[in-house]
Design a protein around this nucleic acid. Structure first.
Length: 491
RNA sequence: CGGGAUGUAGCGCAGCCUGGUAGCGCGCUUCGUUCGGGACGAAGAGGCCGCUGGUUCGAAUCCAGUCAUCCCGACCA
């Protein structure tokens, strides 16, 4: 239908990239690996942000903001944390420029060299824990439940719109607790919040579990995550929640006096989701006609389009449409009337389909005569005529139905693409075929996981929570195993 | 940092081999006919051919250098 636009089957990467650009979500910027999020894409992020923020507040968290720059020395305090991030840090070394001696442009002023370099945060654990030291002295100061909405920079070698960019927007929660149990409870609670958001707002079913040691966050004791399956059979990590133990408290000397007058290190968690969720949204639901957005998050839920031959007809339709628009707005529906006479109806249909608007209402001369409106739903592309009476309820019902249908469709897709492999051969056949989640036995060693990754590019996405225990043999080494873990190729 | 490719109109590209007035499609502007799934016709506007140097009467085209971007690896939310 759309011209010059590759289908998912032809070239999934190209399809994704073109879709992001044509749906007007974002584009590559002049700066290497960075992305410009355009107004439509940002509106989507704002909506996601708003809903997540409500959920964070409901679970007792407050927002705060910490510096973008982190002194280099902070980084080296937690050994595995440095190791994990060292290779992708942007470093600020100077604070001034001067006119170039040859008169052309500016150069770095070598006299303005910083004594200690500043790292642009790839994540904020270190600066935050350095700050928490001064905020926490007593058990009365705990728990400390803080979230930050921020941008971070990770100097990745290869980038991809929304999925991996040099700079990205995210939220990072950082909490401090008096006991291990309480910190663990927080870690799991926030995982539930993320899973709830993914499934009930984004309409994407997710697996919940913990990472293998290889995939664990640098500095964490345990990393919990949610994993979603994309339409090309690759997995996408959609959110993480880390139990940090006392690692950062020890590295930054964050101690408190308990009720029993005992001095102890606090227990920590951190958790985050990023604009990558927009990538997940696109890859989980969209089709060859463009974006398909879940009604609960779509910046625009309903668009009304007139069909007319002349100005008088347009005036009549506009009057009707404005009434309809007002009525829907009153019901809290995000609706727009596109009465522009500079674009043709067919052009508009395609445009809003690209942008994933859940419902399209069309009013033409026929509808004026019959008191009807044509409604097309984006998820199924079905069209039907409805009487204008009680239209708000019908629209509400259709929006709910789309939200539900999108989730169901994604769930069925995941189920159809979740497989068991009992031999190395089966494992490889599956990977080379449709991909998907592959449940297989693993002997539990990092070495084996590494070998499997090198040979197949598949990694352990997670070990499911409350995983079913069963005796088996590792698909790679044949060594005994007690449970299946989830393998996949991933983004 | 290794391997491969590409820089020409806002976007996508041809032209280069074999040097001789800068091209096509989309988009943009104006007018007319259209308008229930990306309409059609006519007339227009728009270029330091990435940058620097060389060869030549003459360079988008040949040569050298340089910068940038993309793809494949290593890295990764």
């Amino acid at each position: 239908m759309a011209k010059d636009f590759p289908t998912r089957a032809e070239n999934y990467s190209q399809w994704y990239n073109d879709l992001v650009i044509k749906a007007d979500l974002a584009e590559n910027s002049a700066v290497r690996g960075c992305m410009v999020i355009k107004p439509y894409g940002y509106a989507l992020w704002e909506k996601m942000q708003a809903e997540l923020d409500i959920m964070f507040k409901e679970t007792g968290h407050s927002n705060a903001y910490f510096p973008l720059f982190i002194p280099k020395s902070f980084f080296s305090r937690e050994a595995s944390h440095v190791e994990g991030f060292a290779k992708e840090c942007a470093v600020v070394t100077h604070y001034r420029l001067k006119s170039s001696p040859d008169g052309k442009g500016v150069v770095v002023d070598e006299d303005a060299k910083l004594d200690e370099e500043l790292i642009i945060r790839p994540t904020s654990e270190t600066i935050i824990w350095d700050t928490y030291r001064t905020w926490i002295q007593s058990y009365r100061d705990l728990p400390l439940l803080i979230n930050q909405w921020a941008n971070v920079v990770r100097w990745e070698m290869r980038t991809r719109l929304f999925l991996r960019t040099t700079e990205f927007l995210w939220q990072e929660g950082h909490t401090a607790h008096a006991t291990q149990a309480e910190a663990l409870e927080e870690t799991e609670k926030m995982l539930e919040v993320y899973a709830d958001f993914a499934e009930n707002w984004m309409a994407i079913p997710v697996l919940k579990g913990v990472k293998s040691p290889n995939e664990r966050f640098a500095g964490a004791v345990e990393t919990y995550c949610i994993e979603a399956l994309m339409q090309d059979g690759k997995a996408l990590q959609a959110g993480t929640s880390h139990f940090l133990g006392q690692n950062f408290a020890k590295a930054f000397e964050v101690k408190f006096l308990s009720k029993e007058n005992q001095l102890d290190y606090v227990w920590a968690t951190s958790w985050g989701v990023s604009t990558r969720l927009i990538g997940a949204l696109i890859m989980a639901h969209s089709d060859d006609n463009g974006l398909v957005l879940p009604p609960k998050l779509a910046p625009l839920q309903v668009v009304i389009i007139p069909i007319f031959k002349n100005a008088e007809q347009l005036a009549l339709i506009t009057e009707k449409a404005n009434h309809l628009c007002a009525e829907l707005k009153k019901a809290g529906i995000r609706v727009k009337y596109d009465g522009r006479d500079t674009y043709k109806p067919g052009w508009k249909f395609n445009e809003y389909e690209f942008k994933g608007v859940p419902l399209r209402l069309v009013i033409g001369p026929r509808d004026l005569e019959n008191g009807t409106v044509e409604i097309a739903r984006r998820d199924t592309l079905e069209k039907a005529s409805y009487l204008l009476t009680d239209i708000t309820h019908k629209v509400e019902h259709l929006l709910d139905s789309i939200q539900l249908n999108m989730y169901q469709k994604a769930l069925i897709f995941r189920e159809e693409n979740t497989f068991r492999a009992d031999t190395w051969k089966e494992f490889n056949t599956l990977l080379d075929g449709k991909g998907g989640f592959i449940l297989a036995h693993w002997d539990g060693t990092p070495e084996t996981e590494q070998k499997i990754k090198e040979e197949t590019k598949a990694t352990i996405r997670l070990i499911p929570l409350n995983n079913q225990q069963e005796k088996g043999k590792c698909i790679y080494t044949g060594n005994p195993s007690t449970q299946r873990v989830v393998f996949a190729r991933s983004y």
